[in-house]
Amino acid sequence: MTYHITKSVGKQDFSLLKQKVIAALQEEGFGVLTEIDIQSTMKKKLDKDYKPFLILGACNPVFADQVLSIDPNMSALLPCNVSIRELDSGEIEISAIDPIAAMSSLGNPAIEPLATAVRKKLENVVEKI
């Protein structure tokens, strides 16, 4: 089982693509709580060069509430990360966490339908791009 939902979207303007991803997340009920600029952080902390690379911490509050109501320790797996990164080829890859892979192995059957529903929403996001 893979742990991510991934799609290469060819060569595009990175900033515009980021806005498309955020809009697609919003259409599926997610907000972006955090944004980690890997390129900038690695340059600053390690003086290492990276191509453009962002991690968006996305949260769908309805599903987050349901999951946390079942098991508050699931907070360690939230938010759902969606990454946007430029590959060596110049193409851009979108990748989202697979909530089924992340949560279903924890042995709580009540979480599984929620993980499945969130996975479908994240698949929709990736497919829209």
Rank of each mutant, 00 (worst) to 15 (best):
T2P: 05
T2D: 15
Y3K: 13
Y3V: 04
I5H: 01
I5P: 01
K7T: 00
G10H: 03
Q12F: 03
Q12R: 12
Q12T: 04
Q12P: 04
F14Y: 08
F14E: 06
S15V: 14
S15E: 15
L16T: 11
L16V: 14
L16N: 15
L17H: 04
L17P: 05
K18I: 06
K18C: 00
Q19T: 06
K20Q: 11
K20I: 08
V21G: 07
V21C: 08
V21Q: 09
V21H: 08
I22T: 04
A23C: 07
A24W: 08
L25F: 12
L25D: 00
L25S: 00
Q26C: 04
E27R: 15
G29P: 00
G29I: 12
F30M: 02
F30Q: 04
G31Y: 13
G31A: 10
V32Y: 01
I36R: 05
I36W: 04
I36G: 06
I36V: 07
I38M: 06
Q39P: 11
Q39E: 11
S40E: 13
T41M: 15
T41S: 12
M42D: 11
K43W: 14
K44Q: 13
K45S: 11
L46F: 15
L46G: 01
K48N: 07
K48D: 10
D49L: 04
Y50L: 05
K51F: 06
K51T: 10
F53Q: 02
L54I: 09
I55S: 03
I55G: 00
I55R: 09
I55W: 09
L56C: 00
L56S: 03
G57P: 01
A58F: 02
N60S: 03
N60Y: 09
V62E: 14
F63R: 06
A64E: 05
A64M: 11
D65W: 14
V67R: 05
S69T: 10
I70C: 08
D71E: 06
N73V: 14
M74T: 12
S75I: 15
A76H: 15
L77P: 03
L77W: 00
L78T: 02
V82Q: 08
V82G: 02
V82L: 07
I84V: 03
I84K: 01
R85D: 03
R85I: 07
L87Y: 03
L87K: 13
D88A: 13
G90K: 09
E91W: 13
E91A: 15
E91G: 10
I92W: 00
E93Q: 12
I94D: 05
S95I: 02
A96E: 03
D98S: 02
D98N: 11
P99F: 06
P99Y: 01
P99T: 02
I100E: 10
I100G: 13
I100A: 11
M103R: 02
M103E: 01
S104K: 14
S104F: 02
S104V: 12
G107P: 06
G107F: 07
N108G: 03
A110V: 05
A110E: 10
E112W: 10
E112F: 14
E112Y: 15
E112M: 15
L114R: 03
A115I: 01
A115S: 14
T116M: 10
A117I: 05
V118C: 09
V118F: 02
K120M: 14
K121M: 06
E123S: 04
E123L: 07
N124Y: 04
N124Q: 11
V126L: 08
